[in-house]
Design a binder for these strands. Structure first.
Lengths: 341, 341
DNA sequence: AATACTATCGAAAACGTTTTCGAAATTACC
DNA sequence: GGTAATTTCGAAAACGTTTTCGATAGTATT
C-alpha cells in the first residue's frame, strides 16, 4: 500500500491537484459538486496530508520545544502535564528535552530545537545558567520564546512566574504567627532567581518583625536533595539548639529535615516548626504532615503555553509582540508541621 | 536577516546547488578545493539545513512519538528520562503525549502521531485498553513500534518488560520466608497485563508453599492511589484481623497502607509485614521504610528506544524485522516493613 | 593519436503541498 | 445581442533539499 496524495485523488477524479487541495480546505472557488466528490474519495482512501510537505510549504510544524532541568521532579512533571494538555488542545505537539541542570547540555539542546525549526520554545533555566548567549540566539532568530519558573530577568521574553519573594514572606510570617522566634532558612543554590527571591523574602520578613537577621542561620543547598535536608537538620540542631522554626526551599528537602527530627525524636512542630515549598504530593503523606506553600504547577504549564501561542500567532502574521509576564498566585497550606498550640 | 539556503551559498560561490549539497555531505565527487570553500562559507553564514525540506526529501524526521498513561508518575517519568537520553544520543527527538489512562485519548494520540509521520512510536498502554484497532493501524502502516511496561500480548511487536509474575513470586516468597502465614494482596485493575501477572505470581507462590488461596484476601484497585491504600488497609484489618502480610501492587498504594497502620498504631512489620512494588523514591523515606521490588525504569526506557532504533533502521533499508522481547531483571529490596524478628 | 578512464561538476527531477493569477465558462444585466 | 460580472477551474511557481545521471575536461594507456 502506497501513500495517498493529492495527486492520486486528482487523477482518479480527473481533476487538478489544485482543485483537490482547495476542496479539502474549503476554498470558496470550488463547486459544491466537486467538493463533495473530493471529500468522499479522500475519506474513502483515508487521505491525510503529508505533514512534511505542509511544514515545508507553510514554514511551520505545529510543534514546540520544551527544555527543563529534569523530568523526574514532581513540580516539573506537573508543569509538563499542563503544557502537553494545553498544547494538544490547540493543535500543537511538544518535544521535551532535559538539561540535567547543565549549561553545556542546555546550549546543545537549544541548538537542536533551533535546527529542528520548532514553532516556539518553552524553557526553565538550569541552575548554572549564568551565560545567556544561547538564549540570545533564540531571540535573535525571532523564535517565539517563553520562560517559566526558573527564569533570568536579564532576558527580555515573556515569563510565567510566581512571586517567590512574597510567597516566602507569607511562609516566614506564618512561622512567626505561630510563635517562632528564631527561624533558620535552608535555601536553594546561589544562582537561580527563585532561590534568591525566597531568601530575600525570608530576610525581609524577619526585619519587618524586628527579628535580627543572622546569616549563620542560612544554609545553602547545592543539589536540593532529601539527603541535604537530613544533613542540614542535623547541623541546625547542633549549631543552634534554640532554633524553633525552619523555612525550607522545597518540600523534598523539608521531608529530609522531618526525617532527621523523627529519628532524633525532636518534636515537630512544638520544638521546631517546619514549612516547605511547592506542595509536593508526598508532603501530606509524611508524618507529621508538612505545611507548605502551594505552587500552581499545572496552571503554570497552561499559562506558559498560552503566552507562547500568542507570540507564535503574532510571529506568523508578522505582527509586533510585546513580552508579557504572568504572575501566578500561591497559598500557604497549613498542616501539622506548623500546628503549634 | 533571511534564512541561509544552499542556493544562497551556491550563488555567492558561483557554483551549483548540487555541488554545495554534495560538498557539505562529503560526497567523493567534489574537489578538495571547492569542498573547503563551501564549508568555510557555510560556517561563516551559520548555515543549517532546513529540516522541513530534509524531512520531505528523505521521508524521515528523526523524531519519535511516546505515549504513556501519565507523566506525573515516578516510574514513568524515569522511563521518559531514559528514552529522551538514549534518543538524543542517537540523534532523535521525542514527542510526548499522555493518555491519562483513557482509551479514547490514546486512540486520538496514535492518530496524531501517525499524521505527524514520526519515525517510530513507543507506547505503554492505558489501563482500559481492551480494543487494539488503533495499534493494529500502526502495524498496518509499518510504522516501527515498541511496547513497554504495560503491554498487550496480543500485539505482535517488540516489547520491553519485566517478568512481573516472577517478581511477584519473589515478593510473596519473601513475606513467607519472614514467617507470614496469611497474606493478602492489593492488586491493580482488571485489564493490565502486569496486574494480572503479579496476581498470578501471588497465587502461585501461595500454592507452592501449601498456603490456601482465598479470593477474599484479594483487593482490587481501580485508580491505584494512596487513598485506595488507606481504604484497603482499613478493610483488611476489619475483615481479616489475622492477616500478617500484604503484597501491594505498587509503592504508592503501599504507602497508603502504611499511613493507615501508623495512624491506628498497628505495628509493621511485627503484626503485619508489607511489601510494595517498583522502588519509588519515597518508599525509603517513609516510616517504616518500605520493602519493595526494584524495577529498572531508566533502563527500560533505554532498552525500548534501542529496540525501536533497530526496527527503524531495518524499516529505512527495507529489511525485514522480527519483533523481539527484552526482559529486564528485578530485585527484592528489603527494608523495615518486612524486617521481622 | 585514438581510446579508455577518472575527476569534477551541474541540470533536472522528485518529495507533496499551498497559493497566486489568469483563463474559461457560465450567468446576469441593460 | 452585447457587455459585465460571477463562478469554477487549473497551470505553474514556490518551499529547500537530495540524488541520479549525463556532460565535460583532463589524464593515462596503448
Amino acid at each position: 500500500m502506497r501513500e495517498i496524495t493529492l495527486k492520486e485523488i486528482a487523477e482518479t477524479l480527473g481533476i487538478s491537484i489544485t482543485t483537490v487541495s482547495k476542496a479539502l480546505k474549503n476554498y470558496p472557488d470550488v463547486s459544491e459538486k466537486t467538493r463533495k466528490s473530493v471529500i468522499a474519495l479522500a475519506e474513502k482512501l483515508q487521505y491525510t496530508p503529508n505533514s512534511f510537505a505542509v511544514n515545508l510549504r507553510t514554514k511551520e510544524s505545529k510543534t514546540i520545544g520544551l527544555i527543563i532541568p529534569e523530568v523526574v521532579h514532581h513540580f516539573f512533571s506537573n508543569v509538563i502535564n499542563g503544557i502537553i494538555a494545553q498544547a494538544e488542545k490547540n493543535g500543537y505537539l511538544v518535544i521535551i528535552l532535559q538539561s540535567n541542570e547543565s549549561l553545556e547540555l542546555e546550549k546543545k539542546q537549544v541548538e537542536l530545537l533551533i535546527n529542528k525549526r520548532v514553532d516556539g520554545i518553552l524553557m526553565s533555566l538550569s541552575n548554572d545558567s549564568n551565560d545567556e548567549n544561547h538564549i540570545k540566539e533564540i531571540l535573535n532568530r525571532k523564535i517565539p520564546f517563553v520562560q517559566f519558573d526558573k527564569i533570568s530577568k536579564l532576558i527580555p521574553s515573556s515569563k510565567v512566574i510566581i512571586n517567590d519573594q512574597r510567597a516566602a514572606m507569607d511562609a516566614v510570617q506564618h512561622l512567626i504567627n505561630k510563635g517562632c522566634k528564631k527561624i533558620a532558612h535552608i535555601r536553594g543554590p546561589i544562582n537561580p532567581q527563585n532561590a534568591i527571591d525566597r531568601f530575600l523574602g525570608y530576610k525581609k520578613t524577619l526585619e519587618k518583625n524586628d527579628i535580627p537577621f543572622d546569616s549563620k542561620l542560612v544554609y545553602t543547598c547545592t543539589h536540593v536533595t532529601f539527603e541535604e535536608g537530613v544533613e542540614f537538620a542535623k547541623q541546625i540542631i547542633e549549631e543552634h539548639p534554640d532554633v524553633d522554626g525552619i523555612f525550607v526551599i522545597t518540600d523534598l528537602v523539608a521531608v529530609g529535615v522531618l526525617a532527621h527530627f523523627n529519628e532524633k525524636n525532636i518534636p515537630v512542630p512544638n520544638q521546631i516548626a517546619v514549612i516547605g515549598f511547592s506542595n509536593w504530593f508526598m508532603s501530606q503523606v509524611i508524618n507529621p504532615k508538612l505545611s507548605t506553600v502551594d505552587q500552581p504547577s499545572y496552571e503554570m504549564g497552561v499559562a506558559a503555553f498560552n503566552l507562547l501561542l500568542e507570540e507564535m500567532i503574532c510571529h506568523k502574521d508578522a505582527l509586533p509582540f510585546k513580552p508579557r509576564t504572568v504572575e501566578l498566585g500561591t497559598n500557604i497550606i497549613e498542616r501539622e508541621s506548623t500546628l503549634r498550640k
